Amino acid sequence: MPKAKVTFEDVGVTVTVPAGTRLIEVSEKVGAGITYGCREGECCTCLTKIVAGGEHLTLPSILEAQVLKDNLAPRQHRLACQAQVLGGEIVVAPA
């Protein structure tokens, strides 16, 4: 199974996780500052800046894309409860 390295800039931690892992799951385990509310991709509280490696994440679902648009999220931002790692190296920070 492919693995990915995810770095959380706010806490200076890098972890290796299996492909398919959602960013919010990793954030919870390392104590990063990504907050969340619903975990269903509707509330936008887990908005996360993708500093590097966005190409190593799944594409936004229709729901996530609409929520990002409705909330005027800047480019390079994703919902941590929806974005899944595919492999490679990813660097994230709380929005």
Results as ranks from 00 to 15, higher is better:
Arg78Glu: 12
Ala32Ile: 01
Gln82His: 06
Ala93Ile: 02
Glu89Val: 10
Lys49Gly: 04
Val51Ser: 08
Pro94Gly: 08
Asp10Arg: 11
Gln76His: 13
Asp10Gly: 07
Ala65Glu: 10
Ala95Cys: 13
Ala65Cys: 08
Thr45Glu: 14
Val26Asp: 01
His56Val: 03
Leu23Pro: 02
Gly53Thr: 06
Glu9Arg: 12
Val92Gly: 00
Lys5Gln: 15
Ala32Phe: 03
Asn71Trp: 11
Pro74Ser: 12
Arg78Tyr: 04
Arg39Leu: 10
Cys44Val: 15
Lys5Gly: 01
Thr35His: 09
Lys29Gly: 01
Thr7Ile: 11
Thr35Phe: 00
Ser27Pro: 05
Cys46Phe: 05
Val85Tyr: 08
Thr16Pro: 09
Thr14Cys: 08
Gly33Ser: 10
Tyr36Thr: 09
Arg39Cys: 01
Cys81Thr: 11
Thr35Cys: 02
Glu28Tyr: 03
Cys46Ser: 05
Val67Met: 14
Tyr36Leu: 06
Glu89Lys: 13
Gln66Trp: 10
Val30Gly: 02
Ile24Glu: 00
Thr45Leu: 15
Val92Ile: 14
Ala65Gly: 07
Ser61His: 04
Ala52Cys: 06
Gly88Asn: 11
Gly33Tyr: 12
Leu68Pro: 02
Arg78Ile: 04
Ile62His: 13
Gln66Ser: 14
Arg22Asn: 01
Glu42Trp: 12
Pro74Gly: 13
Lys3Cys: 01
Ala65Gln: 10
Gly87Thr: 11
Tyr36Ala: 11
Val26Gly: 00
Ile50Gln: 04
Val67Glu: 03
Ala52Tyr: 08
Ala19Ser: 15
Val6Leu: 13
Leu72Ala: 05
Gly33Cys: 10
Pro18Phe: 08
Val17Ala: 06
Gly87Trp: 03
Val85Asn: 03
Ala65Val: 00
Val13His: 06
Leu59Asn: 09
Asp70Asn: 13
Pro94Lys: 07
Phe8Asn: 04
Gly87Ser: 14
Gly31Ser: 05
His56Gly: 09
Pro94Asn: 07
Gly37Thr: 12
Pro18Cys: 06
Thr7Lys: 12
Lys29Cys: 00
Leu86Asn: 05
Cys81Pro: 12
Pro18Met: 05
Thr14Gln: 10
Gly31Lys: 02
Ala32Arg: 00
Ser27His: 02
Arg22Thr: 00
Pro60Gly: 11
Ile90Cys: 07
Leu59Phe: 01
Cys38Ser: 09
Gly31Met: 02
Gln84Phe: 03
Lys3Ser: 11
Gln84Arg: 15
Glu28Leu: 11
Tyr36Asn: 07
Pro94Glu: 08
Leu63Ser: 04
Pro2Ser: 15
Ala93Leu: 06
Gln84Tyr: 01
Gly88Lys: 10
Gly20Cys: 06
Gly54Phe: 06
Cys46Arg: 02
Leu63Arg: 14
Arg75Gly: 14
Ala4Gln: 05
Ile50Leu: 08
Gln82Asp: 13
